[in-house]
Design a binder for these strands. Structure first.
Lengths: 147, 147
DNA sequence: CGGAATCCAGGCAGATACTG
DNA sequence: CAGTATCTGCCTGGATTCCG
């Protein structure tokens, strides 16, 4: 298995005197693990597409520009394992396999959409912040040059 | 700069006959880029901690079990560049630097919290799905063994 | 068509050492 | 204390090949 069970629960928060952050401390980083998965490079795209309708492997592949068959395969298997995607094999030749969102997967998509909306709404503000930051750094670089 | 401006807007969705997925097609993958950043290994933890109160570099380092000073530094710089975190240097010896969430950062935290809540609420269902999946795979492996 | 297996490069992140 | 710089190892993910 390529990643499967991640070895390190390494990035749990230390409680120390920061008493809460309940979700991360208590669940043995289960939450982080799941978060990492759904936030990975391709999962979101797959879920977004499947939320529109059931798709076949090749349809997904063509719809997601830049994904390799390997990564699509890996991504789909993970999503299937997590119970977010349902895989249906039709016993015909040539083989036909359909992928659909489970009810759980649908609720995830709804939640994710909120995050996407935030990103959409904030992107200009972020772009401005980046430009400003870069401008200042360039400015400082010039000053360093001068001495 | 280590990662800075990512080279490939590679993973945009192909419109083809899947007409919408507005957010990803239209913005030149700006959304994906931002999403990747906030969903990375450490950003969420930093944001969650700073949402509770302003913290110094070393406080963050100690609070986040397993993070290297390098990754904390990189993460903070990115968040600062994106306008999500405010960095304040106090001109004293020994140096003191405070990190705080900007208003934009706070709104992000609120949004993220919804996702965390979903994960918390779904984690048992996911764990069950995984167990079931693994059980079936093991079953099939035994059958393969038999022939 | 829908994958699994193998091979391999490039980038990401850890360890260490050094600065202001 | 709060970082930066360099070096290196490892893992992720792409390309290719093969199978049912």
């Amino acid at each position: 298995m390529e990643e499967g069970t991640s070895k390190s629960p390494g990035y749990c928060l230390d409680t120390e005197d920061y008493d809460v952050l309940q979700w991360d401390v208590r669940e043995g980083c289960e939450v982080r693990q799941i978060l990492d998965r759904i936030a990975d490079k391709w999962s979101l795209l797959v879920i977004a597409l499947l939320d529109r309708r059931t798709l076949r492997f090749t349809e997904l592949r063509r719809a997601i520009d830049g994904i390799s068959q390997r990564m699509l395969s890996v991504t789909l298997r993970q999503l299937e394992r997590d119970g977010l995607v349902l895989r249906t094999v039709h016993p015909v030749v040539p083989p036909r396999v359909d992928y659909a969102l489970t009810p759980l997967g649908s609720t995830l998509h709804a939640t994710i959409q909120a995050l996407v909306d935030w990103t959409e709404g904030s992107q200009h503000e972020i772009a401005a912040a980046r430009a400003e930051y870069d401008r200042r750094r360039a400015e400082e670089a010039v000053l360093d040059e001068a001495n």
